[in-house]
Design a binder for these strands. Structure first.
Lengths: 114, 114
DNA sequence: TGAATGGTTCGAAAATAGTCGAACCGTATT
DNA sequence: AATACGGTTCGACTATTTTCGAACCATTCA
């Protein structure tokens, strides 16, 4: 009953590459995920209003994870995701903030944040 | 003798999309091009120490152009490229600067800028 | 006009990325 | 133990990207 696998393999901070990060962020679905994570700390995979099969969604999370953009770990029976803000900010200062701000402004102008 | 085609088709400012830009920047060759352009205003396509066929290089410039990252126009018999800083800064404030700074720091740490 | 230069465009082949159903794996609940 | 739940993994397929040689196109210079 001990956790057999309660973390997905993710790159260490120093293994994160800018190119990979930018590629991960270049997809609209993944950008939407990142925007949601940016506003909500931690979110389970299913809690996204994204209409697509589980497997597709899981794929996008995997890309984000492998790029070092999000961290995923078990929390009960669901996987909980979070942005690796500290790592990204340290490695690439300002990049994530600027991209998120630009994406917020451009893609979803009408979304009432509260 | 009049210029038959002295500009490559490029998106208007308002047609530039963040996702396309990020994808364009996610390739190492293209990032290198952008870094060179960032430090040198305008540069002809050939003036890059990149060892690859003309057609491949041309392809990467095309991706950058289509994404709205660089502008290209005829100057005598060569094509001259420049970063579309003003457009990008207006649309996505801080993104280009942060990415360039991060790329400079990460990829080519030993390059003595002067 | 002819040839050299600088770079684009055209295929076509190879590599990479995205989509999705089906099977699977831990966890929790019964 | 059996079932449900949340999500991953495994193919297989499709679509997009990358790479590169060969042909082409303006421009300039001889």
């Amino acid at each position: 009953m001990t956790g057999k696998q309660n973390e997905q393999e993710q790159p260490l901070r120093e293994e994160i590459q800018l190119g990979k990060v930018l590629h991960a962020l270049s997809d609209p679905v993944r950008m939407e995920i990142v925007l949601k994570l940016a506003g909500a700390k931690e979110v389970a995979c299913g809690c996204f209003g994204l209409s697509m099969p589980k497997s597709s969604l899981s794929h996008h999370f995997k890309v984000l994870r492998n790029a070092g953009v999000v961290a995923t770990k078990r929390e009960g029976k669901e996987w909980v995701n979070s942005l690796r803000r500290d790592d990204l900010d340290t490695l690439f200062p300002g990049v994530l903030d600027a991209v998120i701000a630009a994406a917020r402004a451009g893609q979803a102008p009408a979304a009432p944040l509260r």
